[in-house]
């Protein structure tokens, strides 16, 4: 019997899950809150660690969507869900209600609001930008004029902005900013070859395939500097230059340095769009507010609500590759669940 599967979120995880569910006879409905799919991926230029073109990847994700049994609804804001006779009733802000046999939450993440780290002055000093804004500059090839004139510039990359920070309310490590910082440092060196780039880090978590190699490449081939110390504060001095203070912990001395541009490597925080859904279903959350699965190790895609599944960064910070793998795993679980439901 054909069933309805609702996927909340048309980012990479949602798209991949829909593709994976394409082989099943069920009807797949993607509810996307914006008016196009792709989530955060569409704002990204190149991906670590191999500088793959993000738009190409997005295209291939969108291409693999099954035509026969899937449907995407744009501009739908899901705000509530309730359990009803073994099914889930999905309420949209527009007032529409959809009955679903299974729901997959692929609501993704929000970027940390760098503004909350007041001492870094994002939104106050115009040359303090976030990694995502820098990526936007790469996408649109729209660099501020002062970076274009070809003179040597000093650029600081500040790691762990809004991650591993009780003050910012995030104890978790976003784990991807490290490699993003390395990747963007290399891109900046390519784009502004006369510039020097300094990465201020606490630990570099190069956990993925080819991450450590890229880190070494940044040092060896691109001359990117790495200083082990968390930046304490950024202050604007005359003509928009920025004074950055940190401790060079490896030599145990406080230091200051003047930069032309500071890039804040912002972490991932739980998506606010998932908060009301989680609240309506009393879905438990992890320490930092990501949605908690039943079991972190063996049932990472299942929740305590029957028929409700999780995929991608709504449950923890994941790389694109991990999100996609995760989405496929979730799709498998959904098919299993619907079979089980049939048998009863």
């Amino acid at each position: 019997m054909n069933k309805t599967i609702v996927i909340v979120g048309g980012g990479p995880a949602g798209l991949e899950a829909a593709a994976a569910l394409g082989s099943s006879p069920h009807h797949v409905l993607i509810l996307e809150k914006e008016h196009n799919t792709g989530g955060k991926l569409k704002n990204w230029h190149h991906l670590f660690p191999n500088f793959a073109d993000a738009s190409e990847i997005l295209k291939s994700l969108e291409k693999s969507l099954p035509l026969n049994n899937s449907e995407i609804k744009y501009d739908c804001d899901v705000f509530k869900m309730e359990q009803m006779d073994g099914n889930l009733l999905v309420s949209l802000k527009s007032g529409e209600k959809i009955k679903a046999d299974a729901v997959l939450l692929a609501t993704g993440f929000d970027l940390f609001d760098a503004y909350k780290k007041e001492e870094y002055g994002h939104g106050i000093y115009k040359n303090v930008i976030t990694s995502s804004e820098l990526e936007g500059m790469f996408v649109n090839n729209s660099f501020p004029d002062q970076l274009k004139d070809g003179l040597p510039k000093k650029i600081a990359m500040v790691h762990c902005v809004g991650s591993r920070d009780k003050k910012a309310g995030n104890m978790h490590c976003s784990k991807l900013c490290c490699i993003t910082g390395v990747k963007q440092a290399i891109e900046l060196r390519k784009y502004l070859s006369k510039s020097s780039v300094y990465n201020f880090y606490m630990d570099l978590r190069m956990y993925g395939q080819h991450f450590e190699e890229l880190y070494q490449e940044a040092q060896e081939d691109y001359g990117v500097n790495f200083i082990r110390g968390r930046v304490s504060e950024i202050a604007e001095i005359s003509d928009g230059k920025l004074q950055v203070k940190a401790e060079d912990t490896l030599s145990g001395r406080p230091m200051k340095m003047i930069f032309d541009l500071v890039v804040l490597l912002i972490g991932m925080t739980p998506a606010t769009s998932a908060a009301s859904i989680a609240q309506s279903l009393a879905l438990p959350k992890s320490g930092s507010g990501f949605l908690a699965p039943v079991h972190q190790h063996i049932s990472a895609n299942e929740t305590c609500i029957p028929g409700l599944f999780l995929a991608g960064t709504c449950r923890e910070p994941l790389s694109l590759q991990e999100s996609i793998t995760d989405a496929r795993a979730a799709a498998l679980k959904i098919i299993e669940w619907l079979k089980l439901k049939d048998n009863h």
Binding site: Y115, E118, G121, H122, G123, I124, Y125, K126, E236
Partner: peptide
């Protein structure tokens, strides 16, 4: 310096 930013913090 963007005053708006400061006001938001305040």
């Amino acid at each position: 310096m963007e005053q708006e930013g400061k006001k938001r913090i305040w």
